[in-house]
Amino acid sequence: MFIFLDKIFFDQEQNFTVLTKIKDHQPWTVLYISIFYFTSISIGALFFLGIQNVSKSGWSVIIHPIMEEISSFIPYGGGMILIILLLNTMDIVHIFHWMDADLYNPISLKYDEIIANKRIFLNIPFFLIRSIIYVLGCSFFYLNIKNISCSLYISHSLNDYKKLYFRSIIFVIFFSIISIFMTWDWIMSLNPHWFSTLFSWYVLSSFIITGISTITIVSIYLHKNGYFPLFSESHLHDLSKYLFSGSLLWTYLWFSQFLLYWYGNIPEEITYFIKREEIYNSIHFWMLIPNFLIPFFGLISSKSKSNYKIVFSLSLILLIGHYIDIYNLIAPDIHEGIKFCVFEIIGSLLIIGGFFIYILFSNFNKRKLNSSEGNPFFQESKNYKYPHI
């Protein structure tokens, strides 16, 4: 009888401990996912802007202020990520498993040889230094590019345009390098036993798609409300082509990673897919629907690419699909994987998303949407007409 009662109390205590552990870390996890998601949108928009400046694309010049203001969340999102990382180092939050000092101690029962062998890269001081470089670097280039762009609006100077051009080149090179380490640190290090050589490119493609989707949604919204009259179906058509090609790039990288791992069938590699299949019922396959199939068939027609309602809806679907992708990348690798809780996800999205929208539109109130007039290609962009529309 006593043994039976002891077992009941032990089971209840164990269940309570597990539940407490989940409750302690799940809100932080979904909050971290939302912060990373909205920060990636801003970074993707800035990277897309840098590409437009470097390639001297004339069609997109009138949309540059939209891209710059969407990028304005970078310092805030980056700062919040740094706070969560600091809370991890202080043992208040336990998202990054490898930060446990016992994993590196050969005497400890928790000793992990694989993680210990990565100590040169996975150590807290170096990790924080790298993260600070990512945040400060992206924030610096955002502020610098925006300031030069504002100066160009006033001066109409060719020298200012050259500064914008060369600063964008430096940023594209800088981000092409740090994006590799950023995704390793902020996502892939959540599971130090697993690695992928395609992972950084895969996440970068998601950055670009979510950035362009947000640029498209904001542009359509402002245009429909009469604040952005220069935006036309021709500009929408070109943005739609980027959405279409971006979704194909993401799918290609998704398939390349999956195909190589499935064909190799190496346990330490396929555990990435097996874990997600067990926790979320093969969510890594289902998310192909919003991220590939719907955009593919929805944007394959040239007429669809210039339809405001269709492109707006598909951009929104892509944003939802890539949130699921980010969630799928992060959540399963924290402890034994957190359960999918709709209320916590919606709450974190409302908090961080609301802050993101507030920053975005408060900046629009302080700035004219025709502030790219000083750009030498402004008239080309203003009069841009896609031939088949």
Rank of each mutant, 00 (worst) to 15 (best):
K110Q: 07
A101W: 08
S139I: 10
N105Y: 08
I129P: 10
S108P: 02
K162E: 12
F171P: 00
G77D: 03
F166N: 11
H94A: 04
D100E: 08
W186M: 10
D100N: 12
L87D: 00
I169S: 01
I169E: 02
V172P: 02
F166K: 14
C150L: 15
M80Y: 04
K146T: 07
Y104L: 13
A101L: 11
G77M: 03
L122G: 03
I95M: 02
Y134S: 10
I83L: 13
S149I: 08
H97S: 05
R130T: 08
I84N: 00
S139A: 15
P192I: 10
M188K: 02
S108F: 08
S168T: 04
W98K: 01
H97G: 01
F140S: 10
Y161E: 11
D160Y: 13
L87S: 02
F127K: 08
P75C: 12
S108E: 04
A116S: 06
H97N: 05
P125E: 06
K146M: 11
C138H: 12
I124L: 13
H97Q: 04
F126N: 10
G79W: 06
K118I: 13
I145D: 06
F126A: 14
R167F: 09
I177W: 02
L122S: 06
N88S: 04
F181V: 04
D91P: 00
S189C: 08
D185M: 01
F175L: 03
S151M: 14
F141E: 08
M99K: 03
L122M: 15
D100W: 07
L164N: 06
F127Q: 09
L143W: 10
D185E: 03
L158E: 13
R167A: 05
I107T: 09
D100T: 10
I154R: 14
T89Y: 13
H156Q: 14
V172S: 09
L128S: 13
P125N: 09
L158H: 13
D100A: 11
S139G: 12
S157A: 10
S131R: 07
M99V: 08
G77P: 01
F181L: 12
